[in-house]
Simulated assay, not measured.
Amino acid sequence: MLLAGNIEYTPQEMIVVAGARILEDKKVVFVGTGLPMIATVLAIRTHAPGIIPVFEAGAVGPTLESGLPFSVGDSRTSSGASYVRGLNAAFEMTQRGFCDYGFVGGAEIDPYGNLNSTMMGKFPEEYQKPAVRLPGSGGASDMASSCERTILIMPHEPRRFSETISYITSPGYLDGSPGARKRAGLTGAGPWRVITTKAVMDFDPETRRMRLLHTMPGETPESVQAATGFTLGIAPAVTGMAPPTETELRMIREEIDPLGVFVKKPVREKPVPNQF
């Protein structure tokens, strides 16, 4: 549990707040299920009312005022939408360059922002019977391939940040070589930010390797590196991310996700009663 003044908050809430803060107004955002939804709605209700959300099932520009969608196909993603045309039309928008940002998550990530959400084990030998079978791509690979920029969200642990990942589900900068994405036929510019429970990272414009940009409250460059399975670069000016404000936490807990469907509220341990 973390503290912002006298208010307790969780690392999960900090990820949502960081995701909301880096979104800019009047941008088209391809929104995935879960924390990306919360971050997008929070951004709309704080500093970026002109964001146009796009959902995989085909809704473009909904107001998101009828309650939190539980999935990208929830009927609430269509409420007040500019239009609804289906999955193919939604992804066509990304391929035509009309989506500024896409939120993507995964289980494993390498220094070049390639994400694995498919399987853990040796590929291709163990693909059919991997050590761990993950959920798969869904629309994540399409988003990572075609959105102008992608924002990657995941927990920060050494086993998740690996020099070499088991499988590339969602492409980042591939091998990091100049023009690698273009040679592979990918139209989007690639990963832009990685938001974790410990830090916000970007990518070196020359080497395309991940580097530290902001530390989360209570973290240092040293603690972030210790939780990373490869050597992180360091941006020219690393700064600390400010803790959530009271307004941001109230919106998440009371207005956006009051049931705690995606963002769990802090739970204070109950004191053990004196038995004597």
Rank of each mutant, 00 (worst) to 15 (best):
M1I: 09
G5K: 04
N6F: 10
V17I: 13
V17H: 13
A18C: 13
G34M: 06
G34K: 05
G34E: 10
T40E: 04
H47E: 02
A48H: 03
G50R: 11
P53D: 02
E56M: 12
G58F: 08
G58K: 08
G58E: 00
A59G: 06
V60G: 04
V60L: 13
G61Y: 12
P62Y: 02
T63D: 13
T63Q: 09
T63M: 04
L64W: 12
L68E: 04
P69E: 04
V72H: 02
G73D: 13
S75K: 03
S78Q: 13
S78E: 07
S79V: 11
A81D: 01
R85T: 07
R85H: 12
G86P: 08
L87S: 09
L87V: 15
T94R: 00
T94F: 02
R96H: 07
G97N: 09
F98Y: 12
G102A: 14
V104P: 06
G105S: 14
G106V: 02
E108A: 00
E108F: 15
E108R: 05
D110P: 09
N114L: 07
S117E: 05
M120S: 03
E126T: 10
Y127T: 05
Q128T: 02
K129P: 01
P130R: 00
P130G: 04
V132A: 10
G139F: 08
A140R: 12
S141I: 03
D142R: 05
S145W: 01
S146R: 02
I151H: 07
I153D: 04
P158S: 01
R159Y: 15
R160M: 15
S162W: 03
S162L: 14
T164P: 01
Y167E: 01
Y167P: 01
I168R: 11
T169V: 06
G176W: 01
P178V: 11
R183G: 00
A184Y: 14
G188P: 06
A189I: 00
G190E: 04
V194R: 08
T197P: 12
A199E: 06
D202K: 02
F203Q: 06
D204E: 09
T207N: 07
R211F: 10
R211I: 00
L213V: 00
H214C: 07
T215M: 12
T215E: 02
E219R: 11
S223N: 00
V224W: 06
F230Y: 14
G233W: 04
T245N: 08
T245C: 04
T247N: 11
T247H: 08
L249P: 02
L249Q: 06
M251G: 01
M251L: 15
M251Y: 07
R253C: 01
E254T: 03
E255K: 09
D257S: 01
D257G: 08
L259T: 05
F262E: 07
V263R: 04
P266L: 05
P266K: 08
E269Q: 05
P271V: 08
